[in-house]
Amino acid sequence: MSDMDQHDNRTEQEKETDRKLAERLSGIIEDANAQCTPICNKIRKHIENMEAQKEEDRDEGELVKNVKPHLQQAEKILNETNGAIRGADPDNRLSSKAKRNMQDHKATPEEQRLAEALKVLVQEVGGTIEWAKDKLDSFPKAKRDLGPLLDALSQPLTQIIGGVGLLLAGVLNLVGKLLQGLGLDGLLKGILGATGLDKIYEGLGLDKWLKM
């Protein structure tokens, strides 16, 4: 029996509740990924096309026109996803800030699936936001219009990660490790810092990977 197993003092009913919750959340996040990944690819493509043009041919107004609806669409999807996650809260964990589920335990297959889905979400949406902000430094006019939309898109992403983190804490440890393998764990650390979850995790001793 591993150390993690020994610490898992959830009742069978609690384990089943967590298992079903992880399964439900996985479906919600996977659905968001299926919708957002192609949108993120389009955003990147438009910016890359702009970069590939000669400087005198670049039309920043055209770039804004092309990218803006995609950012708005992605934000709408993530807002709906965030609502669905909050609707999946089985015993008011989010409102009661219940800490029972913050215990560390061996990840279940359902939690691993959820972590994988969240990794994709952070990688695709969070990664695209950071990438686009960086690229738009070269296009100040477009950045003026698109920068606030990128910030707006990051808000529901942060809330989604924060919501899952409060519902099933151990999952974010898995996500952190998955992203670390891709060199993208900084994205998640930034999100946790923005939600204040890093402090909660620290208090519960679940912040090992945050210090890596």
Rank of each mutant, 00 (worst) to 15 (best):
4 M>V: 14
5 D>E: 13
9 N>V: 12
15 K>A: 08
19 R>P: 08
28 I>P: 02
34 A>I: 06
34 A>R: 13
35 Q>P: 00
40 C>I: 09
44 R>C: 08
48 E>Q: 15
50 M>A: 11
53 Q>F: 00
56 E>Q: 13
57 D>M: 04
58 R>L: 04
59 D>R: 14
60 E>I: 07
62 E>C: 09
63 L>Y: 03
66 N>A: 12
68 K>V: 08
71 L>N: 07
73 Q>C: 10
79 N>K: 14
79 N>Q: 10
82 N>C: 12
83 G>D: 15
83 G>T: 15
86 R>Y: 04
94 L>Y: 03
96 S>I: 03
98 A>E: 11
100 R>Q: 11
107 A>E: 03
108 T>R: 04
110 E>H: 10
113 R>G: 05
114 L>P: 02
126 G>N: 10
129 I>K: 01
131 W>G: 00
133 K>D: 11
134 D>N: 14
135 K>W: 00
139 F>H: 03
149 L>M: 15
156 P>V: 06
157 L>K: 00
159 Q>V: 04
165 G>Y: 07
172 L>Y: 01
177 K>Y: 03
178 L>D: 01
182 L>R: 13
185 D>M: 12
186 G>R: 12
186 G>Q: 13
189 K>S: 06
190 G>V: 01
193 G>D: 08
197 L>A: 08
198 D>R: 11
203 G>R: 10
204 L>N: 15
